[in-house]
Design a binder for these strands. Sequence first.
DNA 1: TTGTAGGCGTTATCAC
DNA 2: GTGATAACGCCTACAA
Lengths: 354, 354
Amino acid sequence: MSESTASGTTTGEATARPAVRPTIRMVAELAGVSTATVSYVLSGRGTGGKGPGVKEETTQRVRDAAEQLGYRPNQAARAVRTGKTQTVLLSMTMLRDPWSLEVVEAVSAAARRHDLTPLIMADDDWNVALERNQADAVFIDAVRPEQRDALSRLAGRGAKLVVFDSTVEPDGFDVVRSDDLGGCRELVEHLLDGWDDVACLGPGASRTDRGRAAAFHAALAARGTAAAANRVADIEGTPESAYAGALALLGQADRPRAVYATSDYIAISAVHAAQSLGLEVGRDVAIAGVGNTLAGERLQPPLTSAGPTNVLGAIAELMVDIATDQRAVGHLHDFPWKVWERASTGHAAPLSAQ
Amino acid sequence: MSESTASGTTTGEATARPAVRPTIRMVAELAGVSTATVSYVLSGRGTGGKGPGVKEETTQRVRDAAEQLGYRPNQAARAVRTGKTQTVLLSMTMLRDPWSLEVVEAVSAAARRHDLTPLIMADDDWNVALERNQADAVFIDAVRPEQRDALSRLAGRGAKLVVFDSTVEPDGFDVVRSDDLGGCRELVEHLLDGWDDVACLGPGASRTDRGRAAAFHAALAARGTAAAANRVADIEGTPESAYAGALALLGQADRPRAVYATSDYIAISAVHAAQSLGLEVGRDVAIAGVGNTLAGERLQPPLTSAGPTNVLGAIAELMVDIATDQRAVGHLHDFPWKVWERASTGHAAPLSAQ
DNA sequence: TTGTAGGCGTTATCAC
DNA sequence: GTGATAACGCCTACAA
């Protein structure tokens, strides 16, 4: 009942909101023009130098009518006609992972800037959903082995895909790839160059066969040494476990001088733990992470981290370009990792840091 | 061929592929029937008792043709015709919050069961995006004051909204509401009944004017006492801070016997901290949280928590029912909070626990 | 049991 | 400059 009409004048065309969505036809009728003209005006093609110019007065009449009716174009109908949904879709299998959220934020911001709606799908079986929901560009953050051929199938049907995965090759879709292990190795080497007593903190920290911990052990082995038991903290995935593990490492009288954490979020917990022990991070102890996340960059002191060069921005740009047809699909994008040295390992970031 | 993006290398040639989506007409042609028949078959209306029955042989021919072409119905076209998008949208302003993810999971599961695609929008200005993107049901997890009237406006235009917020009343849209403060108070009372020395852990734990901590102080005041300084740990929002705060509380020689944490996630950190101190949670110390999250329920020992009665399931069901037009909008759903007593406060969950 | 045709709300291609 | 009108792909009376 809170239907307040633009208080009671006369013209009989009371603006009482109908339960139905106003269509372009209603706008045309109210403005006394054709639907074509309305379309021109509302899509901005009437005023700009491009397309048929619409008289200023008509333009205004159309605008008023649309406003008065509260007209909003029907996306579905537009999509039928144009094949574009003005939408980018992010399929994120691990939404709990902070990195996923950073991707979401980066792409969302870029998308909105270009009038695209960013949508997320927290679903690890994206193939079913992607069959029906067609977005102008789709980001897929991980591919399980049995899903591999679904990618080319979807691409062949016209879907514009950007796949973040190291196990697939472009085939009608884009692949974004980023070799983390190489970067990890480089980071450990870097730490070993500066401090001879480096510890490893992370899930599976004792594993020498695979994962980010293996990079640690391999680097040690290459220098003819191996990690002592009290230099390895094998923790669970939770922040509290990371905090506790760091306390165990750094609480020893004979504590390590540097800590290699297998992710930025673990490293952040470690920094907090070190600080609670009264240690000054970057001077008393060096701590470095992996992933080069925003959270690490914003930490005090800023966190040294191995990470790719601006994947986030590149992915965002890529998605927008692809969605707006400014770039063809089918490419491979390789983002080399480097060591981002910051104050948590005793060196302030260079001013030129990007 | 190698162009460079923001940073990183791009290689490969774009695969020029026709990428034409098969339409219902192509299927009809290939099967030698009319488009109507294809539609009947593929929407399941041909075989069931309802609608025009299609001969078994024809049905099969259509199925084969669709399969061969890899036909998938065009959602946009279907939406134009039917007004339904087969989609539910979740607008989550705080995707980092674990509770949001639980909502996402609950609704997603229910939606998929009913052949609806769950999509998430990590955007705090949903009004812009909702104007265009019409889903069959939309969940909104928070409403800022200046957004309030946008709700009725959207509802008036036909959007089916479910709003989770305590500050709005239904007006063409559903409101789901859940009074957490009452539940918090009840939980503190419950702790005070069992243990006379209760501490408070959480952000703003010392505030007596508002928030979940206020419930703690109010309950104490009602019993004629007040909290000592070493019974209040005012922490930051991070898990590490919660862990450290719990250590500070429970590490004291004269430690409190019970801890009221203002969220389940803080309580979980506290449980870990207690265990690291060698305390048996539920016997040596009681710990309770707020929110009644899945994570708390799964903890060892299971976490006592104040929380609403199955909001998650109710929201999920609500969304599906509304999306499938089995339920009208405009209702208020109030979910009273209760204390879910579990082993973390010394009492095993009753077998009848829901 | 199947086909024909009209229409959903848009945009694009013409004429005028 | 503006207006008919034909698509777009799909669904669904209604006719056959």
